[in-house]
Design a protein around this nucleic acid. Structure first.
Lengths: 206, 206
DNA sequence: ACTTAAACCGACCGCTTGGTCGGTTTACTT
DNA sequence: AAGTAAACCGACCAAGCGGTCGGTTTAAGT
């Protein structure tokens, strides 16, 4: 087997299992040994590929978390009849995935953001970048929807994007352990009435 | 000095400093020694009053966090001209406190909920109880507002309460480190337009 | 076949952690 | 003043942590 390919495969296995355990137990509560034990790999292998636990986690953020969030919450925004339905569909779908996942521990971004939102560190920077990408895509979708006549001109798109992201982060935290199905339904209903209120109606100043 | 009073004072000092450090650095990332060092107290004193670190934290939740959340988010609901303005005012005020606190690390309940939302443990139960208290107070306020004609009968109060709580938890996470002032403003504007849409309008079935 | 470099191993190190325990001080009771 | 029970001390422990390092295996290049 090609050596570089082997390197990539090993690193990917470590990252995948690392994210799984970090997500389930938290970064600080998960030891490097624990990850390696499940993979039957040694510490030597780990520190041959990554220079530290933190470096390892940053590579997980950029290589896996980034892609997952993008695939689940950003890309789906390009589909859908209208901007509002694209947003509702993407979020509703993400919540369905969470609801039917017995091991759901919340929104991966919010979890780590919370864990690292203490006294400046590098990691939080990378996490915020991902949130920012979601945010700017939401904003531009809303703005386009406004230009195309789907959304009232009275809507402030930046404000709306912030509100949508905040509410999604919160509901994912609330859903964990609680009766996820009910909470999801309650949330989606209110999200819809919030977003539907943006459509048309006040055909304001051009 | 009365011995029992001394006991209470010492326990309170430990709880106060414990919450301060747990909030700033996280529960797992804060050691018992660290708390005791800042108080110039010994481990012996700590384990004389509390049977474990977890027991200590639970007593913090029930004695301090409970009161703080109640004072900041539940009690203010009884004041204000209308239900909607009571909700907006309480949340806006809480966000102002966070904005002007340089050491703000997010919503204390959401932080710990996130940290302990992993594989069943006792602590998460106590945290959820506090959220529940906030929730039922929000619901009954909204229902009363509906009866009193402030809020449209088409509004589902349980759904609205869930949505409000979720969005607040999320915005507090987003505000940390980011330009809190702008985010707060964006959020409050959208919260208002969400809540104002509930008032009157559809004067539905009695 | 020989070289070379990367992948990998696992014992080891220094440090911190939550928790224990025998002993000392403090303060209330009688 | 003596007795007693509490509050408190701090050395200690086993376990676990992130990280190191000298050595071994594997595989690609020549």
């Amino acid at each position: 087997m090609n050596n570089n390919r082997k390197r990539m495969e090993t690193m990917h296995k470590m990252r995948a299992k690392g994210l799984e355990l970090f997500y389930q137990k938290g970064y600080h509560a998960t030891s490097v040994d624990e990850i390696l034990k499940e993979l039957s790999l040694s510490k030597g292998a780990f520190y041959h590929h990554f220079k530290s636990k933190e470096d390892f986690f940053i590579s997980i953020i950029q290589n896996i978390i980034m892609q997952k969030v993008y695939a689940q919450l950003v890309e789906p925004l390009t589909q859908g009849k209208s901007p509002v339905s694209a947003i509702v569909d993407s979020i509703e779908n993400a919540l369905n995935m969470a609801e039917h996942n017995d091991m759901d521990c919340g929104f991966v971004l919010a979890n780590f953001l919370n864990e690292f939102n203490k006294g400046e560190n590098n990691i939080v920077k990378y996490l915020r970048d991902i949130v920012k990408i979601w945010e700017i895509n939401l904003i531009s979708l809303l703005k386009k929807g406004r230009s195309d006549g789907y959304i009232s001109w009275s809507v402030n798109c930046e404000e709306a994007a912030t509100y949508i992201i905040a509410s999604y982060m919160g509901i994912r935290t609330l859903m964990v352990g609680n009766s996820a199905k009910i909470m999801k339904y309650q949330y989606v209903q209110q999200l819809k009435s919030y977003l539907y209120a943006m459509e048309q109606r006040e055909q304001a100043v051009i």
